[in-house]
Amino acid sequence: MAAIHPDRSAAAPSAGGGGGIRRRLLPAVRHEEIALLGLFLLVAAFFAVAVPSARSGGTYLDLLRDAAPNLIAAIGVTLLLLAGEFDLSVGSMLAFTGVVTVSTFNATDSMWLGIVAGLLTGPLIGAINGYLVTVQGMNSLMTTLGMLFALRGLVYVWTNQTPVVDENGFSVFTGFYRGEIARIPLPGIIALVLIALAWLFATRTEFGRNIYAIGGNRTAARVSGIRVQRNTFLLFVLSGTMAAIAGVLVASQTGTGYFDAGVQGFELIVIASIVLGGVSLSGGEGNLLSAMLGVLILGMVAKGLRLMGAHTTQQLVVTGIVMLLAVFLHGVRQRMLVESRRRNRA
């Protein structure tokens, strides 16, 4: 029995019959990113035809600004999901960090102290989530769902359900959100830099590889000497940190800590976008860049509908339908892949 050369392509000749067309699958079937990019362009093209004002390049730069908080929060949630764990607390964290940031502005009259305080809440809450899940062995879905309610309630009680307004009116803070370098919005730049770092982290480092191993088979990872608990804990801290960065950005939109920021299912939209990007809900499978494309697709849908003048309630319907369509197409693609693998298997 001779080994096939390790780098021969997957389309090796097979003994069995079968048509040649099916074996030469469309690139869109072979590569998730290409399929998602196609979907994104399709959505963008639709709005470009339907809404004249969507045709300018500025729309897409705006999209990058609008989607930045989602993209950044989605980085942490994606990495956790790859390790097989959920983080549903990111929506409430958005509000919590915003309120902490602006309240600290008002209490200390220092912008930097406020930002630092806001950013620090992330790793802190992430560490609590991580401790409960890894050390106490609690289910992450339920743990972070509990955190979702507890944090939201805390924000309501603390703010009395009124927005916390920046009394100093720090213009640097709000200016940052509006700012741009070479026409690219600053929040977008932050998101892109973080995505690039996270992508290198996930694909090129030992820790990143271990994330996939933990999500793909926890027992196998453990008996291969991987520190499953420690790595999972660190990912919760990372996810909290990313959510805090997103929360500070949201607060900088208007210099206000909103008690209901992210209340309309922010965490669910983030997870849905990630799964739309092909990340497996059971962990171990998926690609960070595809997940980010998933976020951008839903972001584009929301933005396009806003430009069309659709009401938020109508947006909800369309977003849901786009999501169902994407999941359906994902299933079709999976079946085609399995089919072609079976044919090629020798």
Partner: peptide, 19 residues
């Protein structure tokens, strides 16, 4: 069940304990 990480590549499965 407890040896392979099924979705991971052949290469990554081989080097899992020696990364």
């Amino acid at each position: 069940q407890d040896g392979l990480v099924l979705p991971l590549a052949v290469r990554a499965n081989m080097t899992l304990a020696a990364l």
